[in-house]
């Protein structure tokens, strides 16, 4: 399957690990991710003007359509903005939706498992809300962690806000929200959002870590030595 790939700004910078992870998993599945030429920023949540946000993503949809009618967007903010701007000529997908297809497990080369290690799945806000742009599959991270041989713990914090959007504006509020997530979680946290990763890592306690879900998959595939 050939997908148009919209990495978004974070994945081209600080969330490089997620970018590489997504690409490696898709390539192991035998799918092709073709980066959309000249994609532009989706505007994230920094503009109050709806029209401008839509215009940015409509441009990306136009560029993406040239590559494939299925666009993959791993970053939750990009996913929401693209879905809001998409028309019926394209479908905008999140990697978790592809990983939830039944064929995923037939195609994924597994060399080892997670050995029962506990992980807290953490979706954050935008992958789950608002409903019309949210993930179209239920509990994909729980399913994947379990099938990779890990143990899902503390799933009640999965939708609680980490305050990521306030990180660069109201640091102290963002810190309190992130620490509340850590209080509710146990063991290490697994996320799919670059901003959640940044904020949770920044305010993590000693010895507790944040992973991208793709890190876990890469470890099981034998593409990554340590976790």
């Amino acid at each position: 399957m050939r997908y148009a790939y919209y990495p978004g700004c974070s994945l081209k910078g600080s969330a490089k690990g997620l970018d590489e992870g997504v690409k490696k998993v898709f390539s192991a599945l035998g799918d092709e991710l073709v980066e959309i030429p000249d994609w532009n920023c989706c505007g994230a949540f920094e503009f109050g003007e709806k029209e401008r946000i839509l215009a940015l993503s409509q441009a990306n949809i136009r560029k993406g359509r040239e590559v494939s009618s299925e666009i993959i967007a791993p970053c939750p903010a990009c996913l929401k903005n693209l879905r809001e701007a998409a028309d019926s000529s394209v479908s905008v997908l999140h990697p978790l939706e592809v990983f939830s297809e039944a064929s995923f497990w037939d195609r994924l080369p597994m060399k080892r498992d997670l050995g029962g290690r506990p992980f807290t799945p953490y979706y954050g806000c935008i992958l789950l809300r608002p409903r019309e742009f949210a993930l179209r599959v239920r509990d994909p991270m729980e399913e994947i962690i379990t099938r990779l041989g890990g143990k899902v713990v503390s799933s009640q914090v999965k939708a609680q806000c980490c305050g990521g959007n306030l990180f660069f504006k109201e640091l102290e509020v963002s810190e309190r929200l992130a620490k509340k997530v850590w209080e509710g979680a146990s063991g290490d946290i697994v996320t799919f959002c670059p901003l959640c990763h940044l904020v949770l890592k920044t305010f993590s306690e000693k010895g507790r870590r944040v992973f991208y879900l793709t890190d876990l998959i890469l470890y099981v595939m034998g593409e990554r030595e340590f976790l």
Binding site: F45, C125, I126, L128, R129, P130, R131, A159, C161, G163, G164, N165, L166, L177
Partner: peptide, 8 residues
């Protein structure tokens, strides 16, 4: 924070 919990 724009978490849309209120919307949900």
């Amino acid at each position: 924070t724009g978490c849309y919990a209120c919307t949900f």
